[in-house]
Design a protein around this nucleic acid. Sequence first.
DNA 1: CTGTTAGCGCATTCAG
DNA 2: CTGAATGCGCTAACAG
Lengths: 336, 336
Amino acid sequence: MTTIYDIAVAAKVSTATVSRVINTPELVSEKTRAKVEEAIEKLHYAPNALARELVTKSTNLIGLLIPDIANSFSPAVVDSFVGEMERNGYNIFVSITDADPEKENKCIDIMLKKRVEGIVLLGTRRMDRLANERIGILARRIPIVAIDYMPGAEGVCCVRCDEILGAFYATEYLIQLGHKRIALLNGNEEYTTYYYKRKGYRQAMEKYGLPVREEYCIATTPYFRGGYEACMQLLSLPEPPTAMFISGDQMAVGAYNAILSSGLKIPDDMSVVGFSGSPLSKAVYPPLSTVSQYARETGSAAAGIMLQKLRGEETKERVVFQPTLVKRASCGPAKQ
Amino acid sequence: MTTIYDIAVAAKVSTATVSRVINTPELVSEKTRAKVEEAIEKLHYAPNALARELVTKSTNLIGLLIPDIANSFSPAVVDSFVGEMERNGYNIFVSITDADPEKENKCIDIMLKKRVEGIVLLGTRRMDRLANERIGILARRIPIVAIDYMPGAEGVCCVRCDEILGAFYATEYLIQLGHKRIALLNGNEEYTTYYYKRKGYRQAMEKYGLPVREEYCIATTPYFRGGYEACMQLLSLPEPPTAMFISGDQMAVGAYNAILSSGLKIPDDMSVVGFSGSPLSKAVYPPLSTVSQYARETGSAAAGIMLQKLRGEETKERVVFQPTLVKRASCGPAKQ
DNA sequence: CTGTTAGCGCATTCAG
DNA sequence: CTGAATGCGCTAACAG
């Protein structure tokens, strides 16, 4: 590996001069600059960022923790976040944690050692306030932005969608269409997203005086298969629901499959509202009503806040996107 | 930021001893180890990886270049690749290149400066041999694994699916069902994936003596919307196709929408085969026949090869997965 | 078992 | 405009 010293020798200058043509070329005379650049070219010199960062104490590195990359929300957030950070000269160090707090902790340790200048936590977390304590403490030393809720670490800046409200809108919409038997097809309610979605669902049901029937509330894995299986279960009930609010677009598509392959029609026999507003929701047939979560906007908002923090500017404590209910053909009035 | 020196002072030992309790604790006496560990704990010491790596010349960093994270293939590959590398003690430095060769080049420069120990290039590339020349040269200095084809850089290890064969299978299947008017709904054919898919399609058509009709071959954006629009265009033809091979599952779902919302039935009025084998293909209704691309296996194969290279072991020049045609309800016999 | 010393590759004073 | 010298935080001989 060629070093700054090799270049200095080849160009017959000091290492300081080489350093200058790289970092402050305007301070170097035309002639020596040319000499040095030639040597750099010839020897394929790539300055060792480790050494550089050791002295400048600036890594331009941001850590990104992703609990789950396979859902319909993460990729879009990651894309917009990474793009925005890169455009501003930062680089990204990622880790996929499978939503495992222990793994997350280890990753954070590594990131701290690598001297990342900020950490972004993407996606839902356990409703475990204690587990988040460390994050809260860490946030006093290094910029941290959480995408989604962060119970128990009040100092951490959160960028998220108001999921209670989103779930409320979705459920209310179904109620207003005349449905009374409305199912909630949810994910694991120990996680923030699903906890809050249940809350919104419940609020809507209660507001309109409808009973929350336990057999209508199912928590399953938030992917296609989970949606399919849970929906099958609902359809086999003696008195099946006439509508369902489903906590994720992937689950909703799985439910579509269950409904359609049971010979039922959407929305005639079953109304469906999803959650996420991913491109998928618009793509399926019939197009899926969904609560739009603004994934890309969330990613760039997180980047914006992170950049502010890195510059030492004051930032908002929290950015909450108001979800929008996108009404599409998957919902219809309740039959009499 | 506390340093090894601070710990040494606090524990009243030398920095060498601190270094030992961190790296080779078995060489330190129980007593001093306890002292040092206490100091580390108390001062929240996290060894500076930059300094460490500068002297050990080992970063455990792998660069991962992702051209497009939004398709149905990348997330699964990334997940399995990253998981496998992390399990083996490596960390990941990512960048999203939007398939822009210039951006890719800049990213590689940064990665080289950061002293990554290997680089993985994910996903399709332009059919531009010259653009890949640099990769080929680089591969002589540092382990490089390309996921997908890599024309023009023969030294680079490639992990990919035989897309020609996959497209051939898909098309042949439709032909054997009696279809003669078979469309190809493809992506931009300047990119390897779509170039080779067209090739496989053509080979099948020619083998069975069917004409390749230009108006049946459309190149569009490989997402839902592209599939929808291209399919609409095909349906409006005076003599529309009776079957289509679609180069990606997302496009296929977009096409589903176009077909179903035009009042046609799948597979009665239109047979469809997709490509990717993503969970999505199984989830939609009717379940989509597709060419399975083994995303997760591809990711872990790439990791496996990278790990071998990092250990200095000999590796295969190329790993080619034989795609499998998964027959589902989206295809039926051609009507007379 | 522990301390001393010498760099790793670079940026940054401070002279000249 | 350029060079010599110093140190960033750490590991790795080498002594003791």
